[in-house]
């Protein structure tokens, strides 16, 4: 359990840094949803299936959908701004 938690925390931190420093906005959005996914698995590990389900459906699913729609709405998905 400790190893899995360490792996997930590392994935989350790397995804967070990537989301803020990467050049492409698309990479940033994908990293943010990767962070939500790792957080979902961590919640399962912490014996909270309810919260994991919410984070998976609402955070990783709907949140990423909103961010992806924002990419096209704000015209950030082609080239640098």
């Amino acid at each position: 359990m400790t190893l899995i938690a360490l792996l997930l925390v590392l994935v989350m931190v790397v995804a967070a840094v990537t989301a803020l420093l990467s050049r492409s906005h698309l990479t940033a959005v994908v990293s943010t949803s990767l962070l939500s996914l790792a957080l979902t698995l961590l919640f399962v590990l912490l014996k909270a299936p309810d919260v994991a389900m919410t984070e998976g459906v609402v955070g990783a699913g709907l949140g990423s959908l909103i961010l992806a729609m924002a990419l096209s709405r704000l015209a950030l998905n082609r080239g640098e701004d």
């Binding site: 989301a19 924002a70 950030l76």
Partner: peptide, 18 residues
């Protein structure tokens, strides 16, 4: 970039939830 500020908000919120 303001879009990155929104992403940063999401990240900080995930940390607070955890």
């Amino acid at each position: 970039h303001l879009f990155r500020a929104v992403l940063a908000l999401v990240i900080a919120e995930s940390g607070a939830n955890l």
